[in-house]
C-alpha cells in the first residue's frame, strides 16, 4: 500500500514537470497557432544556465534567478527573429524552422559548454528525505517540485481569469483580428506569451536539473511526452494541460511500476518482464489513442 502511495507521488511529480512544459507549449499553440518543436531547447537552456550559475556561485537560488530570465529572454528573441516570419506560413514550415532551432541550440550548448554533461545538485536545504507516513520516505526535493507546480498552476489560473493581460490573451486566442482591431498590440502580446511559455519551460528545466543529466539534447526526451500531453488535454487549453499532464505522469509511472508485477501473475517471469517493459513504454500512447477515439479534440478543447 505504501508502495502504491509512493508511486502515486512519483507519477504526480512527473506530471507536474510535464505540466510546466506543456503549459508553455499549449499557450503558444493555442494563441499563436505556432507549432514550436524547439520548446525543449528552452528547457535545456534553463537547466544549463542554472547549472553554470550554481557551480560558479554555489547557490541554487541564484541559478534559478538567472535561468528564468535567460529562458524567457532567449524565447522572446527567437520569437522576434524567427517565429514572426512564420505566423502566416503553413504548419509544415513552422515545424521545419523550429526543428532547425533544436539543432541550432543543441550545437550551441556544445560549443559553449562542451560535450560533457554538467553537474547540478539538489540544494542542501532540500536534500533531505521526509517520512510522510511511517515507512514512506520521500525526497523533499520531489515534494518541492510538486509544490512549485501547484503554485504555477494557480498563478496561471489567476493570470488568465483575473487579470487584464489574461483577458487579452484569451481574446487573442479566440479571435486575433478582432483584438488587434480593438487596439491591443497583438505583436507585443505574442512576444510576451511566447516569453511566458519559454520561462515555464526554463523553470521545468531548472527543477529537472538536479534530478536528471544536464546535457545537450535533454529537451527532446521530454518534448515527445509534452506533445502527448497537449494532444490528450486538448491543444491550446491550460486546463487540458493540467489534466493531460497528470494523466500521462500517472499512467506512465504506475504502468512502469506495476505492470511487471501484474504480468507475473499471468505469465512466466522472463516473458512477463519483456512484455511488461514493452507495454509500459507504450502505455501513454495507447492512452492517447483511446482518448482521441473518445474525444477527437482532446479532453478540454480550447475552442469548442
Amino acid at each position: 500500500m505504501l508502495l502504491v502511495i509512493e508511486q502515486f507521488l512519483n507519477g504526480l511529480q512527473l506530471g507536474i514537470t510535464l505540466f510546466l512544459m506543456s503549459a508553455g507549449l499549449t499557450l503558444v499553440f493555442g494563441i499563436m497557432q505556432v507549432i514550436n518543436l524547439a520548446h525543449g531547447s528552452f528547457y535545456m537552456i534553463g537547466a544549463y544556465v542554472c547549472a553554470t550559475v550554481a557551480a560558479r556561485t554555489g547557490s541554487f537560488l541564484l541559478g534559478l534567478a538567472a535561468a528564468l530570465p535567460a529562458a524567457a529572454f532567449t524565447g522572446m528573441l527567437v520569437e522576434f527573429i524567427v517565429l514572426r516570419r512564420l505566423y502566416k506560413r503553413e504548419h509544415l514550415d513552422q515545424v521545419l524552422a523550429t526543428f532547425g532551432l533544436i539543432m541550432f541550440f543543441n550545437e550551441l550548448t556544445r560549443i559553449i559548454w562542451g560535450r560533457q554533461p554538467l553537474f547540478l545538485d539538489v540544494p542542501p536545504w532540500l536534500s533531505d528525505s521526509l517520512e510522510l507516513l511511517p515507512g514512506l520516505i520521500y525526497p523533499v526535493y520531489r515534494l518541492a517540485v510538486i509544490g512549485v507546480g501547484i503554485l504555477v498552476a494557480l498563478a496561471l489560473w489567476y493570470l488568465f481569469s483575473r487579470t487584464r493581460l489574461g483577458m487579452q490573451i484569451r481574446a487573442g486566442a479566440s479571435n486575433r483580428d478582432m483584438i488587434s482591431a480593438l487596439g491591443v498590440n497583438i505583436k507585443l502580446l505574442y512576444t510576451l506569451v511566447f516569453g511566458l511559455g519559454t520561462l515555464l519551460a526554463g523553470l521545468a528545466g531548472v527543477m529537472a536539473g538536479p534530478i536528471l543529466a544536464v546535457e545537450a539534447g535533454m529537451g527532446e526526451n521530454i518534448l515527445i511526452l509534452t506533445f502527448v500531453v497537449i494532444v490528450i488535454g486538448g491543444i491550446g487549453s491550460i486546463r487540458g494541460a493540467v489534466a493531460g499532464a497528470l494523466l500521462v505522469g500517472l499512467v506512465d509511472t504506475l504502468g512502469r511500476a506495476f505492470l511487471p508485477t501484474l504480468f507475473r501473475l499471468i505469465f512466466q517471469s522472463a516473458t512477463a518482464d519483456a512484455a511488461a517493459a514493452s507495454l509500459a513504454s507504450m502505455a501513454i500512447y495507447i492512452l492517447m489513442a483511446a482518448i482521441l477515439v473518445w474525444k477527437p479534440k482532446g479532453l478540454f478543447p480550447a475552442h469548442s
Partner: peptide, 22 residues
C-alpha cells in the same frame, strides 16, 4: 530479485527505484 528493462533514454527512474526498494 528482479530484472527490469526500462525505456531507452528514460529520464525519470523514481518508479523503478521505489519498486526496487520494496
Amino acid at each position: 530479485k528482479g530484472e527490469v528493462y526500462t525505456k531507452l533514454g528514460q529520464a525519470d527512474y523514481a518508479a523503478e527505484i521505489a519498486t526496487l526498494r520494496a
